[in-house]
Structures are given as C-alpha cells and as structure tokens.
Amino acid sequence: MPTVSLQADVLTRAEALGLKARGIVEGLRIGEHKSPYKGFSVEFVQHREYVPGDDIRHIDWKSYGRSERYTIKQYEQETNFIAHLLVDASKSMEYGEGESNKLQVAKLIAATLAYLVIHQRDSAALGVFDDGWRARLPASSQPGHITTILRTLEEVQPRDKGAIGPLLSELAQQVRRRGLVFLISDCFDDVAELVKGLSHLRFAGHEVTVFHTLHPDETGFPFEGMTRFIGLEDTTKLLTRPNLIRPAYLRALQSYLDELRDGCRAHRIDHVAIDTAKPLGPTLAGWLAWRLQTA
C-alpha cells in the first residue's frame, strides 16, 4: 500500500505530468491545428407527437406553425463521445532511461489525450493493463476526472508480461457504445492476436488509434561489444556480440512492424509510431493535423 508520503510524491509527479500534458495541449491549440473533436456532440433522428408530460422546451415551434400540431425533436444521443485510453504497463514498457522511458512516454500520451478530450467536454476512460486489467477508470467528462487519471497513471509501475489482444477483444464486448480507443503500447505481443483484438474494436464501431511507443535502442540496436541481454518479461538471457547480429535483428523488427502496420491498415486503424527519445509535441501535432485532413 502506498504511504502518505508516497501519495504526496505521486501527487507531485502527477501534477508535473499534468503540467507537461497541458503544455502539449496548449501548444496544439495555439498552433494551426484545430481540434478534430470539434463538432462531436448530438445527432437529430426524428420528430414525434407531443404527449402531456413532455418538456415544452423541446416542442418544435416551426413545425407547429406549418402543421398546427405539437411535435417534439428527438435526438439519438444526447451525451458526448467516450475516449478509451488504454495504457500498456507491462514489464517491457520499463525500457529506457529518464524521459525516454517507454512507460513514461505512454503516460504522457495518455495524459495529453485525456486533457484534450475532457477539455472538449467529451468523456475519457482509462484502462491500464499488462496481462490483465490493472486499473480502470470509468468514462467521465468532469474536469476533476483529469486529476484522477493523472494520479492513476502516476501510480502505475511496469509489471508482468503483456497480453494485449485478448484484453482488446474483451473491451470490445464490454463497451457497446461507439467511441474512440487509444492504445498506447510497445505492442511486443503476438501480432496476429493484437490485430485480432483491434479488429474486434473496429467491428464494435470504435475508432482505434495505436500509439506505438518504441525506444531508439529497439529500433536501431546500437550496442557494441560482448553484451548479455536479460529479458524484461521473462528470464531469458542471451550473450552475444550485438554488432554482428544487428542486421538480423533489424530485419526481424522490420518484419514485425510491417505485419503490424499492414494489420492496422487493413482494419482502418491509425498506427502512430512514437520515438520515445523525441519530443512528443511535434509527433502528436503531426498526427492531429493528419486526422483533421482525413476526417
């Protein structure tokens, strides 16, 4: 159990995370890019005849002028969209030092998106997972919900092996209402399972975006000399000279990335590659601009 001091520490760090996320969001709003979520609100479906008890504020007076009958406007949804922020907190997300740590970057992406969504009066839900759900926050559009999300994110520590695909499938079954799903993960999982989970979300009508966080070491494999690699998610230990196997590694990585991107493309899922060593703002701005153009 976290102690009081730890909670204070978490709070401090959550505030720092919030500040950082707010900074990014402000940057996005100040810039040329418009929020892609503007206009997400209600949708007119049909008229129906007024019955006693209905709120007279909803009577369509224009229709009464034409037909001298009291009719009421009916909307399909009267609430905001829900953005599901799914953060991978498996052990593999522990890689990277300082600000380039994959989990930290994932938290920052989640916090930034939470700010954006709630700022537009939409609802944001948070799900933190490894091989199961470790934390879930229900959707809310209350401004105070951001603080809850930030605290939850800060308390998350990497743990266990990740199993993303089944969780996504499970989520697709649980959430009936269409929404936005943001998966923030290194996606070091079986690609077929992962794509299958993502496709389930798509079939459920969700718009899915994958923020694929990878450290430059993982994409460039820049190691030299005799090195012993110790698996973060299992006990595997490999002693090798990385410079000799670099091309083979990069080939394997590229194959995986191609498979993942192809899978995403096939299901109209946005795949956003995040280099954890680079500033997050320009990357997110680029992605938002792209969405604006393609919306």
């Binding site: 973060l232 490999l238 083979a248």
Partner: peptide, 19 residues
Amino acid sequence: YREVPWAAMKFLLTSIEQT
C-alpha cells in the same frame, strides 16, 4: 560483458537463431 535489460527479446532470439 555488460548486461542490458531488454524488452524486444523476441527479435533478438530470432536474429540469434539465424546467425
């Protein structure tokens, strides 16, 4: 040798198997 905790073991295993 130096020790490096590593996430992408899958690709490493694949490359070592090949080489």
